[in-house]
Design a protein around this nucleic acid. Structure first.
Lengths: 332, 332
DNA sequence: CTGAAAGCGCTAACAT
DNA sequence: ATGTTAGCGCTTTCAG
């Protein structure tokens, strides 16, 4: 493998000069620079980023801990983050936390050991007490994405409460009074906030919260399907349903289909999160769509600012959702 | 930041001993080990993976170059690869090639500079002449995933030709003679092979290939939608359609919907690639499903073997698809 | 404008 | 069973 030494020797200069032409870190005689560039060309030299990182004390690398890469929503998020970072000359290392604090800790540990310059985390339930303090202790810049946590750090996520309220309000507006809700994984802020939005909508109209109308979908489609199946099999089932994320939506739709119920005829339906195919589905789904691109880009922006040394107050940014009024709500 | 020196000093041993207890690379007195472990605990020491990599000459890192993380298919693939690697103690670095040889070259360069121990690549069109030779020159173990290329290296992908043929055969079996095809991005092996499967099915029945029935969906949903819209607007449109990957399928369905045509009434439909929601969609889609888990795990297995020094002949592995007979083909 | 040389934090001979 | 030490390939101060 060719090293800087080889290049220096071939060009008849010191490694220090080679390093400087490579990095543009000091003025170099045009002619010398040319010789160096030729030597690089000739040898096919490629700088060893590992050695560079060790010497320079930064890796130009950012770590991302995220749950469930399989979920298309997170897939898009990773994509958005990756693009923003690579535009800024950084490389992304992703770890999947499976939404468990313990496995998140492993991911974070590994990332920290790799001396990432910064970290973006979609915190699992319980990570305030597990990985997040470690990151703080290591002094690594951090921004939370998608969900929040009760710590001092930048955070970027979608608007949850008011969007969930708007979805629920819509069902209420068109006359429903028994509205079921399918909520996501317990213990994470987005679940709580979206549920709060649902509750707020009800309470605005003086409707009491009915615990029997709440389905806990945990993290997965299957749980949501089971829960909705049970709920919708009951005698006094709700006339409308709000689903709080895309996995919940798939589960819900499967259950409804399995029961032979029709949307919106037998039950009106609205959901948080949009799908690429949501206007393909019959009926088209009325949904609140997140702006994943903006969320990802914003997280990166905040993080880079921290990496560059900004130590202003922590920012909490909410990116608005877009309400897509289609026909699963049944008010055409 | 605490280093091995700090730990060694606190434990009253040499750094070499610390290193060996950390790595289990030589026997150390139980008592000494305990002292070291305590010192590690006390200082909150975490080994600097960058320094380790430089000294040891390996990074325990694998690079993955893939196109379009947004595509749920690739999302699952990344997920599968990540899991298999992390089980083996490796960390994944992902780069998005956007299916362009040039941007793939950037990704590969960066990965190579980071001294990844191995590389998994879903080659873009033209990468035989761009990034792949570089990887070979660097001597980095490589396995191709999803698509093949005409080089000497391990390759893992889905069964394409026979699966595409089976899909087409099915339409032919139930009496269609004018079968349109929506193919994927030109220049990559999966597109070619799947198209070959379509052609083979026709030729088996003595049906001539009709160029007017071929839609080139390029890489994206929009192109597929436009192409199918045009095709299905024509007077003598086909009575059946095969779509060759999930992006093409979404485009096709959008076009059909836009034209107000019904499946399978106006046109029978089958597709390569399955969706999580494919039995939610009405009608349920008849599809050939890839086994992404197996593809990912196999790629990792082959790669690790190479990393461990195996230099046997290159293997080309095809993972079978599963035919899901549902009702978009209209032969219920 | 350029070079010499001291590390960055760790691993792995080589000694003892 | 443990310690000494020479690097790994680069960056960056300090001299010139």
């Amino acid at each position: 493998m060719t090293t800087m030494d080889d290049v220096a020797r071939l060009a008849g200069v010191s490694t220090s000069t080679v390093s400087h032409v490579l990095n543009g870190t000091r003025k170099v005689n045009a002619e010398t620079r040319l010789r160096v560039e030729e030597a690089i060309e000739q040898t096919g030299y490629r700088r060893n980023v590992v050695a560079r990182a060790l010497a320079a004390g930064r890796t130009n690398t950012v770590g991302l801990s995220i749950s469930a890469l399989t979920n298309p929503y997170f897939g898009s998020l990773v994509h958005a983050v990756e693009r923003a970072l690579s535009d800024a000359g950084y490389v992304l290392i992703v770890g999947d936390s499976h939404d468990e604090a313990e496995s998140e800790k492993r991911v974070v540990d590994s990332l920290l050991g790799r001396k990432v310059d910064g970290m973006i985390v979609a915190p699992a339930a319980g990570s305030e007490r597990a990985s997040l303090p470690e990151i703080a202790r290591a002094g690594t810049p951090l921004v939370l994405i998608d969900r929040g946590a009760d710590i001092e750090s930048d955070q970027v996520g979608p608007e949850n409460e008011s969007s969930a309220k708007a979805l629920t309000d819509h069902l209420l507006d068109i006359g429903h009074t028994r509205v079921g809700v399918v909520r996501g994984l317990a213990g994470i802020s987005s679940t709580t906030e979206r549920f709060d939005g649902y509750v707020a909508a009800l309470s605005d109209r003086g409707i009491d919260l009915d615990a029997s109308l709440i389905v806990d979908g945990e993290s997965n489609t299957e749980a949501a399907e089971r829960g909705v199946y049970a709920l919708m099999s009951s005698a006094d089932r709700p006339t409308a349903l709000v689903s709080m994320n895309n996995a919940m939506t798939i589960g819900t739709l499967k259950a409804i289909r399995r029961l032979g119920l029709s949307i919106p005829g037998d039950v009106a339906f609205v959901c948080y999160d949009d799908f690429e195919w949501s206007d393909l589905f019959e009926p088209k789904l009325t949904a609140a769509a997140q702006d994943v691109e903006t969320i990802g880009a914003t997280a990166v922006e905040l993080l880079l600012r921290r990496i560059q040394g900004d130590d202003g107050a922590a920012q909490h940014i909410r990116v608005p959702t877009t309400f897509h009024h289609r026909n699963s709500c049944g008010c055409a």
